[in-house]
Design a protein around this nucleic acid. Structure first.
Lengths: 238, 238
DNA sequence: AGTGATTTGTACGTATGTATG
DNA sequence: ACATACATACGTACAAATCAC
């Protein structure tokens, strides 16, 4: 762990503990540099991370105001997975694997991101229960050329991301995602006990590794009354 | 404009023009430092911006791969406003002001962000047409202590953000937003010609200025079949 | 209104470590 | 083993915004 990462995490902890209260200023960059015995650049790097994620707001000539918006946000945002989500909240959850088989690349993936016609993918369908009700149906298309052997059912029931990152040592890096509303398909209707004219919320993601190779397409179908997405966003200059 | 901002914008342009093609590497940091005649740190700062926004992916020992995902994203994400959105796409659009009046702070805002009971707000309701159909109903609550006189109807029909930033010289900085689905209310039903059991997508935002003062609450009600939200997201470490 | 002290923002140069090919 | 390229870290200098006196 680098110095700036440690310092960033440390300041974040102190915000949570109330040592740096919300609405007040952090110590100045120079003060922090002295207390951590690092250069001012290292403090600034640590603070940049906190600013990007909504923990502080910096203002020239004034200082760094503590925000701590992370309290409110339900992290379906970013790339956080269902398992991680479940652990961060206290819900009783269960996952069932509905399908787990090798298929040729679906049409909507061919051509994009170097995917060739007929290229093998693993198609995984899982239902997610919270408090006894199925609230999400996940479709994953995993690129066989990256993950090789496929995913054992017993792992698919827990967390495929943990498996990829820790067992296969893959570095999942970024995703392009969209949120749209669609009519429920047959599986959605059956699993979530809804009708053909009911809408579900789809979160569709193209997921990439650290070297920018395409690796996974996911379509998460959320029961409309159980869906919530929250994020912290900064205004970008026009 | 600072050097790193200029360089960042310049590289972005060159990506759009195909001078730096998607899938290829940018010149090395040292090469770019020479061509722009700046230090390597300045190049790195410029590239950090491009990496955060999904234009490039950097990899140690290898280089910076051009991604350019901005092509795909429909920027309801971030803090981009309807007006800016409309200009970036080529749709025929119209805005109608349904209501524009001074009200005491609504209950759901009192207590948060230093809002006091009875504090004056401007409540603005606007409908947004695209291609002749109303697809969005926007509710804005604007803090009178910040914007003073209120917003003239003829400005509300165009862009309130442009007015705030350019006329009132306010620096809009960040927002905390959530996306949820709700049943259509009376105004939604009337304006979008939908029924009481139909769902709409609500995008609710708390918006803040550069000094972290709360300034605006917005609730955008989107017709469900016209809603789309897209974003580029990086995986955050657990 | 003004001056100086404080604080953040940008920029440069250098050194060292680490991953890639 | 080697060169290349990115990542971190330090120190310095100056600019710009803020605040207190």
């Amino acid at each position: 762990m680098y110095k700036f990462e440690f310092i960033s995490a440390d300041i974040q902890d102190k915000i949570h503990q109330g040592i740096y209260p919300v609405g007040r200023l952090l110590p100045s960059e120079n003060d922090l540099a002295k207390t951590y015995d690092v250069s001012r650049e290292t403090i600034r790097k640590a603070q940049k991370k906190l600013e990007d994620t909504g923990f502080i707001q910096k203002k020239q000539g004034k200082g760094a105001i503590v925000l701590d918006f992370a309290r409110f946000s339900f992290p379906i945002s970013g790339l956080t997975s269902y398992k991680e989500l479940q652990e961060s909240q206290q819900f009783h959850t269960a996952t069932r694997v509905l399908s787990n088989k090798r298929v040729p690349a679906p049409d909507f993936l061919v051509g994009e991101d170097g995917v060739e016609a007929g290229e093998p993918f693993i198609h995984l369908i899982r239902s997610r229960e919270m408090e006894g009700e199925t609230v999400i149906v996940d479709h994953d298309y995993l690129r066989v050329s990256v993950i090789q052997d496929g995913v054992p059912d017993e792992i698919a029931e827990v967390s495929i991301y943990q498996y990829f990152e820790q067992e296969l040592d893959l570095q999942i890096s970024f995703a392009n995602k969209e949120i749209v509303a669609k009519k429920a398909d047959d599986i959605d209707q059956k699993e979530m006990a809804i009708g053909p004219d009911d809408f579900i919320i789809q979160v569709n993601s193209h997921v990439y590794l650290e070297d920018a190779t395409f690796f996974q397409y996911t379509s998460s179908h959320h029961r409309i009354d159980k869906f919530r997405f929250a994020e912290f966003a900064r205004r970008t200059a026009q």
